[in-house]
């Protein structure tokens, strides 16, 4: 499998405080990578840096573009090109669906927005794609004209996923995608994410503090502490035979994930 994203020596400070330091990893096409660690460990900063949303102070993030090979996000690509990638080849699933959705337009418009941004100017085709994606995320297509405000948290999160996947991205960034949801709803969403990433061959970086989520979704994981990666490897390796003191503490302090 080929590398789709490669981070080398990433560092980012906020004032005096380093948020991440010397972070390097690779993500392969079709692979799901979990980033775990407690809050304040730099997970979200890392996600922002590798998703083109926050320029790191040092280091490189290279993405395998569809046609032009590896490109450094901040050096080789203009802001326009980064934004174009972000709404075509990438997805970004926010922890709070309200941040990733347009709450004042209908579900259908939320799903169709990326298509319109890409120049789709046929209402009927946008409608068909939106209907199709609503059912793929297990939502009732009858609700296509309803406002996301009338949806439950789980439905909003599924809508956000549909909105991101409608352009067939190859890489999706997820920031705690299940943490705001009830346990029963979480299971359903996890199952959906797992089957979608597999069916579409999606690569994903999932930031989570929940080791069980990492176990279910990810083949590989990074453990972060104090802005650094303290351990990385196959998910079952890291969880079953953790080497670093912090990982051991993390694993031993939760119920069997």
């Amino acid at each position: 499998m080929s590398v789709i994203l490669e981070a080398r020596g990433l560092a980012k400070r906020f004032g005096e405080r380093p948020a991440i330091e010397d972070v390097s990893f690779e993500l392969h096409a079709g692979e799901v990578l979990a980033v775990v660690g407690e809050s304040g460990s730099g997970k979200t900063t890392l996600l922002n840096c590798v998703s083109g949303r926050l320029r790191p102070d040092a280091g490189t993030v290279r993405f395998m573009t569809r046609h032009e090979g590896l490109k450094e996000l901040y050096a080789d690509l203009s802001e326009a090109e980064r934004r174009f990638l972000a709404r075509t080849d990438w997805g970004y699933v926010h922890q709070r669906p309200e941040e990733g959705l347009r709450m004042n337009v209908s579900a259908g418009a939320n799903v169709g927005e990326r298509l319109m941004a890409l120049g789709e100017r046929h209402y009927g085709r946008i409608r068909t794609a939106a209907t199709d994606w609503l059912s793929r995320v297990e939502m009732d297509p009858e609700r296509i004209d309803d406002s996301p405000r009338t949806f439950s948290g789980g439905m909003r999160q599924r809508l956000q996923i549909a909105r991101n996947l409608v352009t067939d991205p190859r890489l999706v960034f997820m920031d705690e995608p299940t943490s705001g949801l009830d346990v029963s709803v979480q299971a359903r969403l996890l199952d959906l994410l797992r089957s979608l990433t597999r069916a579409l061959g999606l690569a994903a970086i999932v930031v989570t503090h929940d080791l069980a989520v990492a176990r279910l979704l990810a083949q590989r994981m990074l453990v972060m502490k104090g802005g650094r990666i303290v351990e990385q490897g196959l998910t079952d390796q890291v969880l079953d035979d953790p080497q670093h003191p912090y990982t051991q503490l993390l694993v031993s302090s939760v119920l069997q994930p």
Partner: peptide, 18 residues
């Protein structure tokens, strides 16, 4: 600046849907 105008069609889409 980037001529990203998909959003305007979202408004028109909403009109037609409604």
């Amino acid at each position: 600046g980037l001529a990203e105008y998909g959003l305007m069609h979202v408004k028109l889409y909403e009109d037609i849907a409604r």
